[in-house]
């Protein structure tokens, strides 16, 4: 079955094929557009809406829509809209960066394990199993609490605990692909290990990794929000999770201060999930979801 998939995908332009599949999924296309707008907002927003998110611009807890503040003000009288716009940058950045860290670790470990097999695979998969068993949030809480809640540390703490799924998927793909004819053929024609791994096998292993990576960005955003909710956050930057965390105690009387950043996270992660679904359908039409 997989053989068949490979050959068909290789026969035609795979990207065009995938794109055709993707655009047929209306929800995914809509999500892509929304996410694109959110990204534009994150990049250009601070210039279009130049209010400093740290400035106290009005009295605290001005409800949404009043006094010219679309989303109201927080406990210090800061403009919630400005905070959410600026928070988008940090949240998306952490999401992307943490996902990249974990994809890097996961692909490397999975690829090496799946390619070399033997004791290398044994050691690497035991390590993976171990990280799978470790409760991720607890471990990153310890890291952030001990070494400070800087953005870099938070990103690292999220990335370093989230790579196991990627490693497993990559390894499974490598195990499958390394036995395929075209790999055997290039091995016979004298291709080195590195070349085989990165230019022959990896490109063909990409579809499920891409799907998983997309989902991982969403998970990382949620993860950062969770850490911030518990107070493990950098007070010198605004992120969506951080807005929720610091407004948590006002939830009963000014619930909008938590609802809006919560919605921002929700919509973003929802879009990412929908895009992930679309990618999944487009890239692995017959592969079972993982």
């Amino acid at each position: 079955m997989s053989n068949e998939v490979m050959t068909t995908v290789r026969a035609r332009s795979p990207l065009a094929e995938a794109w055709d599949m993707f655009v047929r999924n209306h929800a995914a296309v809509a999500a892509l557009i929304v996410l694109f707008l959110i990204t534009i907002g994150a990049v250009a927003g601070p210039y279009l809406y130049p209010t400093d998110p740290f400035d106290m611009v009005w009295s605290p807890f001005s409800p949404p829509g009043e006094h010219g503040f679309l989303l109201g003000t927080d406990y210090l009288g800061r403009d919630l809209l400005a905070m959410i716009i600026n928070g988008a940058r940090v949240s998306l950045l952490i999401g992307l960066a943490a996902a990249m860290v974990s994809i890097f670790i996961g692909v490397t470990i999975g690829a090496v394990a799946g390619f070399y097999r033997g004791w290398v695979e044994e050691v690497l998969m035991r390590t993976t199993e171990f990280f799978q068993v470790l409760p991720t949030l607890l471990f990153s809480m310890v890291l952030v609490a001990l070494f400070g809640a800087s953005l870099a540390m938070i990103t690292f703490a999220i990335g370093v605990v989230s790579w196991t799924a990627v490693a497993r998927i990559t390894r499974a793909e490598f195990l499958r692909i390394r036995e395929l004819e075209f790999v055997i053929a290039s091995r016979a024609s004298g291709a080195g290990n590195a070349k085989l791994m990165f230019t022959v096998i990896l490109p063909n292993a990409m579809p499920p990794i891409i799907v998983q990576s997309a989902l991982m960005v969403g998970t990382a955003i949620l993860f950062e929000a969770g850490l911030s909710f518990l107070g493990l956050t950098d007070p010198n930057v605004v992120s969506w999770g951080q807005i929720i965390g610091s407004n948590r105690q006002y939830i009963l009387d000014a619930s909008y201060t938590v609802t809006f950043p919560g919605l921002a996270i929700f919509i973003t992660v929802l879009c990412i999930s929908l895009i992930g679904d679309g990618l999944n359908d487009a890239l692995n039409p017959k592969l079972r979801q993982r």
């Binding site: 969770g226 919560g262 996270i265 929700f266 992660v269």
Partner: peptide
């Protein structure tokens, strides 16, 4: 929805 909303939220 369940998957995309932060669980504490």
């Amino acid at each position: 929805f369940g998957y995309s909303a932060p669980v504490f939220w």
